[in-house]
Amino acid sequence: MPDPKATISFELNGEPATLAFAPHKTLLEVLREDAGLTGTKHGCELGECGTCTVLLDGTPVLSCLLLGLACAGHRVTTVEGMAAGGRLHPLQDAFAELGAAQCGYCTPAFLLAAQALLAVEPRPSRAAIKQALAGNLCRCTGYLKIYEAVELAAARLRGEDATPARETLYGHA
């Protein structure tokens, strides 16, 4: 017997949205199953891995722990909403240039967590980046290329002529 559906209105990636869904559903399930936005991934559905991170009113939240109903009237941003007007976000450009995405499964969450950091801290230290991303697991990269990409994007967002940090690579001999 299917649950009766609940209907909410909220802002999804800059556009007004009205969705009807079973009221027990998490935001993660609503986004993936009812909004058709599969860029938000599930990694554990227990709030441990950070893979399902989205922004709620600009703040990173774990969409697997939040009921879809709780988003009524709020602003939700997913990875699909990062590229504005057909242009990639500087973070997306920097991740591409520096190879910060490998398998790509954790990438949407890292991009959003980093976007939230840069919104409040345009010149983050390496320690601040590490702290801001500490709730997101990546098993491919060892995180270093992600830090470098965040630093590069931050510099470009500040309008600085930036070259990628390369301190972890000594090159060939």
């Binding site: 980046i129 702290q131 997101n136 697991l137 830090y147 301190e167 972890t168 690579l169 000594y170 001999a173």
Partner: peptide
């Protein structure tokens, strides 16, 4: 996590 790892300096 990010807080558990050092710089990993790589040379080939």
């Amino acid at each position: 996590t990010t807080e558990d790892l050092p710089p990993i300096r790589v040379a080939f």
